[in-house]
């Protein structure tokens, strides 16, 4: 019985295993191998073993700088916008409206990010917000194809992903704790800082990590709203592989991007462990 069950499991896993092997592990292995190779003069890859490509990474410094400033900035902005909304949905809204309002948050996230992003070309372009500001006499302002446009685009694109984990964490919050705090004379800000905020930390961490990870790999939003002036690592990759056809260097850039993401995930796991303990403290009170 045990043997047949093991065999059945192996059989059931075979298609998925082969699929991952062919289109996930093999491609990632190729990227890793190519990153130690050399550039073929006619474009593509020439075998070799050198750290030259990694030494050359500073050549794409601007892409890494843009990604590593706009991704954290976008994450923080999304967090600041999402938190009050999640709080409102979890604690203030009546049960009757909760589901509808939650669905309304996620609906935009379900529609094509490509279409939602290009909508901002209207809003930030010459006839959009800048024209409005000018009409009010606030002077000329160029928004499209600036870092600001990309920031708006990424916050807009990933906001729903930040709202949900925070909402889930706040929803679990035992409201009698808040009542007890107020009965014992704690002002609202104090019970927020000492109960609500620490209890919602797991949601904040999860949402921030999700958004940050997705932002570091972003290509589409900078391509559409940055007009080739504000580029992320993802845009540099596209340029390296499709335009300059420098596969070895492109592979090194891709490996560097993955390493950055792994570091973030590792930090997140550590932080969750820390906040996990903190959460138990609150429970013990």
């Amino acid at each position: 019985m045990a043997i047949t069950q093991a065999r059945a499991r192996a059989l059931l896993l075979t298609p998925a295993g082969l699929w991952y092997a062919a289109l996930l592990l093999f491609p990632l292995a190729v990227v890793l191998i190519f990153s130690f190779g050399e550039r073929n003069p006619i474009g593509g890859y020439a075998p070799g073993f050198t750290l030259e490509q990694y030494a050359n990474l500073p050549a794409r410094f601007a892409a890494f700088r843009n990604t590593l400033t706009l991704a954290p900035l976008g994450t923080v902005a999304a967090l600041l916008i999402a938190y009050p909304l999640a709080y409102y949905l979890a604690i203030k809204v009546s049960v009757r409206w909760k589901t509808t309002l939650l669905i309304l948050v996620i609906v935009p996230f379900w529609t094509s990010i490509l279409i939602r992003s290009y909508a901002w070309i209207y809003l930030l372009g010459g006839n959009g917000i800048p024209a409005l500001l000018e009409a009010f006499g606030l002077g000329e302002l160029r928004l499209i194809n600036t870092p600001f446009a990309v920031l708006v685009g990424i916050v807009y694109g990933y906001l729903p992903l930040m709202v949900f984990p925070i909402y889930v964490a706040l929803e679990k919050l035992d409201k009698s704790l808040l009542e007890a705090a107020s009965d014992l004379g704690a002002p609202p800000w104090r019970s927020f800082l000492q109960i609500t905020l620490p209890m919602s930390m797991p949601g904040v961490m999860t949402g921030s990590m999700l958004v940050f990870i997705l932002l570091t790999g972003e290509f589409l939003i900078p391509a559409i709203l940055g007009g080739g002036k504000v580029f992320f690592v993802g845009n540099a990759l596209v340029d390296l592989f499709l335009q300059s056809r420098n596969w070895a260097f492109g592979s090194a850039v891709a490996v560097a991007l993955i390493v950055i993401m792994l570091i973030v995930v590792a930090l997140y796991t550590r932080a969750v462990r820390r906040f996990g303990v903190r959460r138990d403290d609150v429970g013990l009170m």
């Binding site: 998925a16 491609p27 190729v30 790999g217 993802g234």
Partner: peptide, 27 residues
């Protein structure tokens, strides 16, 4: 398998696309 599923979901689409392109082109 847990790791494979996680990698597939987490690695950015642009990296998966490029990796598949150069691996398949080479193969």
């Amino acid at each position: 398998f847990d790791v494979l599923v996680m990698i597939a979901v987490m690695i950015p689409g642009v990296v998966i696309g490029i990796a598949a392109l150069i691996a398949l082109a080479t193969a």
